[in-house]
Design a protein around this nucleic acid. Structure first.
Lengths: 192, 192
DNA sequence: CAAAACCGACCAACCAGTCGGTTTGTAAAT
DNA sequence: ATTTACAAACCGACTGGTTGGTCGGTTTTG
């Protein structure tokens, strides 16, 4: 049952990263949290970095699967957008506590070539799929036929920014509300 | 000339953080880069964290000063917005290389209470000032009179997101172009 | 019984911070 | 102008503690 054990280790590691921060997280802590021994953990993963990369991959796969689920449906573009927001909102509720860890992963990705390449691919894929969504909306005549690359990049940037600010300071406004506000303004525009 | 020496240490530290990443940056490296000795550096700063916090403060002060410069002028709101984009674009050129470090600071701020509080204050201030800008635009009759808090939060999120994505993967599109694309879509809106 | 999975004591490297001592600036006393 | 006095600024060898990773041996599994 190698896969189960690996998952057990990854879950433990994510818990430690979330609790202690990536910089302060030690292998000893991950080992202890996993319930295994040091040798056991190192039998499954060659290094601390290997664990980080594995967690990162799971996170990206999950996000991409979520997007695919929404886009696969046979509905109008605005409905897809609504559903995407709802799904992300629901999904994020499961890992709000891990969001600082996400930030640290991003920081790490700017240094680690392996991580950087994976992240670049992930975003390229994600961007293309979102582009298709906006192209659909334009074809349906509900959205402006702007260059889809610009629109998609702006949309993703807006969402990432909302996440970032929420992570830095969740204070009173819940994440779902922030996302909806942002989307509304992006759709309607500011100009009179 | 205590201030000069402190600045010398902070500049060296930022260089090391940018080069090695915050996690891997050691005091020995900062000491070496600064040209001083360990005792010398520790005479000016009590700890590694104190150095980080000082750098963070400088960064925030700079950003706020830039915003104040723009807002203080006696011109229409859209012109202020244009100018803000230009100024940020020019300013960012000076520290593109340090942007991964910025990401790491953000990650750190979610753990360190002192940093977190400073960052919260900084964003609250920044938000209020941006709100005033959108209120001005609404009063001038060029922008929709939406709730300024929502508009300002969305605007900041959009910009932070653009920065984030650019840091993660600068590939071909320059930052200034990305900012302008994003602003255009936000102003005009997507809906037909 | 062989390979896979696991154990945990051990280690070499490293790191933030300390401290006793030295140099430098500077202001008052001679 | 020179000495004295003292604190600010600086030096760098040293340390106590920690960390990622290893390895020879043990248990479990098929």
């Amino acid at each position: 049952m190698s896969d189960d054990r690996q998952q057990q280790i990854l879950s433990a590691a994510l818990r430690v990263f979330t609790r202690d921060g990536f910089a302060k997280a030690t292998m000893n802590a991950i080992v202890k949290e996993s319930g295994l021994s040091k040798g056991g953990v190192y039998w499954h993963f060659d290094s601390k970095d290997a664990i980080v990369i594995a967690i990162f991959n799971q996170f990206m796969s999950g996000q991409e699967a979520l997007l695919d689920t929404v886009l696969a449906q046979n509905i109008a573009a605005p409905a897809k957008l609504d559903q995407l927001v709802s799904l992300i909102e629901a999904d994020v509720a499961n890992f709000v506590d891990d969001m600082p860890a996400t930030l640290e992963f991003y920081a790490l990705a700017t240094r680690n070539p392996t991580l950087k390449q994976q992240l670049t691919h992930f975003y390229a894929d994600y961007l293309h799929k979102i582009e298709a969504l906006f192209a659909q909306g334009a074809a349906e005549g509900v959205w402006r036929p702007l260059p889809t690359a610009h629109t998609a990049a702006t949309f993703i940037a807006l969402f990432e920014g909302v996440f970032l600010l929420y992570t830095l300071d969740p204070h009173d406004t819940p994440l779902g509300q922030r996302m909806k506000n942002a989307i509304n303004i992006l759709l309607t525009g500011l100009n009179l």
